[in-house]
Design a binder for these strands. Structure first.
Lengths: 330, 330
DNA sequence: AGACAAAAAGACAACGTTGTTTAAATGATT
DNA sequence: AATCATTTAAACAACGTTGTCTTTTTGTCT
């Protein structure tokens, strides 16, 4: 690899002058700058980041630990958001993917710190509590899409309560009056909070809570094909007879569509449907397309990176709003 | 940050001895090793990778350029596969996400080369041709899930022909005799090759090609909600009357399920369905669960990384087989 | 105990940069 | 033309490691 000194020799200047050109130091005369620029091009010189970091004692790298992020598609926007901000400020992102066990997160953090990252974003696949290796306290760390018992970490999570409220208000204000909510497992914080938000909406609009039916369903994953969301949808449609259903997750909505179709109930006309997530291609796959509350992943990624780059010291626990994506299903 | 010399002072040895301990040099007496290990722990010393890389002139980092990878969920297995192999060999992965325009890929490559990566994996979201910045030729580069007119790059792609053959043979051998193939846009290499594979299967089994109906459908994306796959499915079911349908992509299968259900045709009993991709949660979402040809993303990631780490010089263009995931839909 | 080989640890330079100090070139002012 | 201030470039040290060479320590054999 060609070094700064070789460029200097080639250009007939001192190697320090080359360094100045590379770093856009204005105190280089045009004639010398041109010589250097030419030599750089001719020799194909590329600065050595490792050497630069060594000397500067600043890496310009932000670490991103992705806690098994990869399984759920849209979560990836977390990385996209963080990368955008980093890029704009000439910082680099070092993404490490770890599985859920704690050991691996610690190893990842170690790696990152050996690279002298200037901060770490720890992002989770879904909004939940995490247990973090203590090593992370040694470096500015932000939690994204998760929270920790140890409240010393600033965190950014989706505003689940408000999301529940928003979607329920939207339905109520669209004239729906009897709503069923096929919630996720209520051990999940998202499920608890969204439920609360939906209840809030009913209270806000003065609609009696008898008009709201909430039920947790369990739902098929790629591994186990069991799910009771179809059964629940059918039973609720038959017995509770809602005029709208809110699904805790877009995949649940897919199953609801199947069940309702089989019962001769047409989504959008006979039954409003709304959901949470804006999961990849799913909403557009359905007819009518699914109205859903889009998770603010991109914004959370941005927020986390901005927090780090501003070198904030305050420990805050922020929430970001979902976006209601209105399509044809209600 | 604490340095190797501070550890040395603390432990009462020369800094070179600390370096030896850190690098597991066996020529350090146990008593000194213990002293050093203790001091490292006590002071919280962490080796400085940048300095190490500077001196060693070896980064141990492999670059991964993800060509807009993030939009399709399961593609992420490419990174997972690559990371697994890298991890096992004590290498690190530096992942950069780029959008499709060429400029950005060049910038990404530049960044990586400033970090003196030992190789680059350029991976695409879906199997297609890419145009690469020339700078990539300066560094060992492997293409994954894509290919390039410039055949100087080794590449690893899915074996589309064989996948078509496999799924068609599976259906034929399961007794299906009249098959429709809802193909993707035939400008896509995957569509062309899979079609060929399916035809091969019919020839292999001596089933007349009149029993095979192939048609390209266009298909809804999250942006535009148009799709003709529903119309095509209905028409074909009515007119061609196949006993099985192969879908070019799992999302198409979802739409086929809807249409067939509305026609009173039960998947798995009245009509076999198979598909390509094994797209995230989709297959398990359907009832019966969708049998599909899983793309070898993980294996491609592994292959690409292994190719780089073996420092192979031969330029090969390999194909990896899909995996038939048999569920209940045929 | 003395000689010698082997093991262990130290001294010092080097990696490719950037920060700091010093020197040279340039230009303005008298 | 001499003086001085300012701009520009060079010299040199430093960053935190590892490679190489040298010295010291240890252990074995006579």
């Amino acid at each position: 690899m060609v070094t700064i000194k070789q460029v200097a020799t080639h250009a007939g200047v001192s190697f320090k002058t080359v360094s100045r050109v590379v770093n856009n130091d204005p105190t280089v005369k045009k004639i010398n700058r041109d010589k250097v620029v030419n030599s750089i091009k001719e020799l194909g010189y590329r600065p050595n980041r490792a050497a630069s970091i060594t000397r500067r004692k600043k890496s310009g790298i932000i670490g991103f630990i992705a806690d098994d992020l990869l399984k759920v598609p849209y979560t990836f926007d977390l990385i996209r958001g963080a990368q955008k901000v980093a890029w704009e400020q000439n910082k680099e992102l070092m993404v490490l993917n770890v599985t859920e066990d704690r050991y691996s997160a610690e190893l990842a953090a170690q790696h990152l710190m050996e690279h002298r990252v200037e901060g770490i974003i720890y992002a989770a696949m879904y909004h939940h509590e995490v247990i973090l290796p203590e090593i992370l306290l040694e470096c500015p760390t932000v939690l994204a899409n998760c929270y920790c018992q140890n409240t010393q970490y600033p965190s950014i999570v989706p505003d689940e309560v408000k999301a529940g409220e928003t979607v329920a208000l939207a339905l109520l204000d669209a004239g729906y009056r009897k709503i069923a909510f096929l919630n996720l497992n209520e051990q999940i914080i998202a499920a608890q909070d969204r439920k609360q938000g939906i209840i809030n909406a009913f209270i806000l609009r003065g609609v009696p809570l008898e008009n709201l039916h909430i039920e947790s369903v369990f739902h098929g994953s790629p591994d186990k094909e069991v799910s009771n969301s179809r059964e629940a949808t059918a039973r609720i449609a038959r017995e509770f007879k809602p005029d709208a259903i809110i699904c805790g997750q877009d995949p649940i909505a897919v199953e609801a569509y199947f069940v309702l179709q089989s019962m001769g109930i047409q989504v959008g006309r006979d039954m409003g449907i709304a959901s949470f997530d804006d999961w990849d291609t799913i909403p557009a796959l359905l007819q009518p397309a699914l109205s859903t509350m889009a998770l603010p992943h991109f914004d959370m990624g941005k927020w986390a990176m901005e927090y780090l780059l501003e070198e904030r010291q305050d420990i805050v626990h922020e929430k970001l709003p979902f976006t209601l994506v209105k399509r044809g299903s209600y």
